[in-house]
Amino acid sequence: MTSFEITPGEQAELHKALHDALTPLASAVRSRTSGLPGDRVWEADPVEVTLSVLAAWKVVDTEVKRLTEIAAGTAGAYGASYEQLGAVWGITRQGARKKWPGAVSRPTDAAARTSGALGLCGGTAELVREAPSGGWRWTGEGADGTRGASGAGVRYATKEEAAAHAGAFLREHALDRP
């Protein structure tokens, strides 16, 4: 099995990147909760200051969980099994099924070759293989209610290529776009 451990150098880079991302968020949380101007938010009781940092980490934790769920669903949409998801996360197949219950769906073999569903960013898309050309197309609805489809006459060579284009559409029409 492949190891997903990171090197000490990568760990240090990750620590710095997370700290750099957290600092402005913690400052904003601290400013809102304390009512102090931005240049004075850290001039307070150390308990209050550290609780603001903890609150910012909670926001980051919630976002990481949301993005993790999207990644598991995407992997499942591309054909990953619960066993594979569990192996990457360091849990059992059953643990992965419990953690991401809708991430993996197993259509019949014939249906898997001719269609597929994709759920990303709160929207859904249907991937369909057209006979006789064998090309793939997609139709979808973003979380914001916008409907879209592959362009007129556009067919993709693979299901994965159609899914990538559908996924880009769904991300563009997510409710919580950055």
Rank of each mutant, 00 (worst) to 15 (best):
L85C: 03
L85H: 02
L85A: 04
L85N: 03
L85P: 01
L85D: 03
G86M: 03
G86E: 02
G86T: 09
G86W: 02
G86I: 02
A87P: 11
A87K: 15
A87S: 14
V88P: 08
V88G: 06
V88M: 11
V88H: 08
V88R: 07
W89P: 07
W89D: 15
W89R: 15
W89Q: 15
G90C: 07
G90Y: 03
G90L: 04
I91K: 07
I91R: 12
T92L: 01
R93N: 09
R93S: 12
Q94V: 06
G95I: 01
G95K: 00
A96L: 05
A96D: 12
R97W: 07
R97P: 09
R97A: 14
R97V: 06
R97S: 14
R97H: 14
K98Y: 06
K98D: 07
K98N: 08
K98P: 00
K99Q: 14
K99R: 15
K99T: 14
K99C: 10
K99F: 10
W100A: 09
W100P: 00
W100S: 05
W100H: 10
W100N: 01
W100T: 03
P101H: 15
P101M: 14
G102K: 13
G102W: 04
G102Q: 12
G102H: 11
G102M: 08
G102S: 14
G102L: 07
A103C: 04
A103T: 01
A103K: 01
A103E: 03
A103M: 05
A103Q: 02
A103R: 01
V104E: 00
V104Y: 01
V104R: 01
S105T: 15
R106G: 04
R106N: 10
R106I: 10
R106A: 06
R106D: 10
P107Q: 08
P107K: 09
P107G: 11
T108M: 11
T108I: 11
T108Q: 13
T108W: 15
T108E: 14
D109C: 05
D109K: 08
D109Y: 04
A110L: 09
A110G: 13
A110R: 10
A110F: 13
A110E: 15
A111Y: 09
A111Q: 08
A111N: 10
A111M: 05
A112L: 09
A112W: 14
R113C: 12
R113Y: 08
R113N: 05
T114F: 11
T114K: 08
T114P: 04
T114S: 08
T114H: 12
S115T: 03
S115Y: 02
G116Y: 09
G116W: 13
G116F: 12
G116D: 11
G116I: 09
G116C: 08
G116N: 12
A117G: 13
A117Q: 13
A117P: 07
A117W: 11
A117E: 14
L118D: 10
L118Y: 12
L118R: 08
L118E: 08
L118P: 05
L118T: 03
L118F: 11
L118M: 05
G119L: 06
G119D: 04
L120I: 12
L120G: 01
C121I: 00
C121H: 13
C121R: 13
C121F: 13
C121Q: 08
C121S: 10
C121K: 03
G122A: 02
G122T: 02
G123Q: 00
G123L: 00
G123C: 00
G123N: 00
T124W: 02
T124D: 08
T124C: 03
